[in-house]
C-alpha cells in the first residue's frame, strides 16, 4: 500500500507446531474490514512465536495483502500459507491496536 501505516510490524512465525493456533474475525464487507486476531491458542505456532497478540490487525500474509478480501478468503490465504511445504514460516504484517 502506498499509504503509510503507523506501527506496522513484520512478524515471522515458524511452523513448529501442528497448528497455527489463531482465531480471526473480520474481512471486507463486515464491521471489521481487515482480519483481526481474537484468540491465540496455547501450543500453536503463533503462541510459540510470542510476537502475535490478540487485537492485532493482519495487513499482509507472505506479502499478500488482505485488503478487500472477504473473511473466508482471508482465512483461506492464511490456512494455505500454513499448509504449504514450500516455506517453514509465515510472515505476517500486523498493526498494533491503536
Amino acid at each position: 500500500s502506498p499509504i503509510p501505516v503507523p506501527c506496522a510490524v513484520l512478524v515471522r512465525v515458524m511452523k513448529n507446531a501442528s497448528t497455527l493456533g489463531i482465531a480471526i474475525e473480520g474481512g471486507a464487507n463486515t464491521q471489521q474490514p481487515l482480519p483481526r486476531i481474537v484468540t491465540i491458542q496455547k501450543g500453536g505456532s503463533a503462541h510459540t512465536c510470542g510476537r502475535l497478540k490478540v487485537g492485532q490487525v493482519i495487513l499482509e500474509v507472505n506479502g499478500v495483502s488482505l485488503r478487500g478480501r472477504e473473511h473466508k478468503e482471508a482465512a483461506r490465504i492464511i490456512a494455505e500459507a500454513f499448509k504449504t511445504k514450500e516455506k517453514d514460516h509465515i510472515d505476517f504484517l500486523v498493526v498494533e491496536p491503536s
Binding site: 480471526i24 474475525e25 473480520g26 474481512g27 464487507n29 463486515t30 481474537v38 484468540t39 473473511h71 492464511i78
Partner: peptide
C-alpha cells in the same frame, strides 16, 4: 459512519 453501522459482524475462524 452510517455505512459502517449497516455492515454485518464478521464470523470467526480458527486457524
Amino acid at each position: 459512519r452510517e455505512k459502517r453501522l449497516t455492515l454485518p459482524p464478521s464470523e470467526i475462524t480458527l486457524l
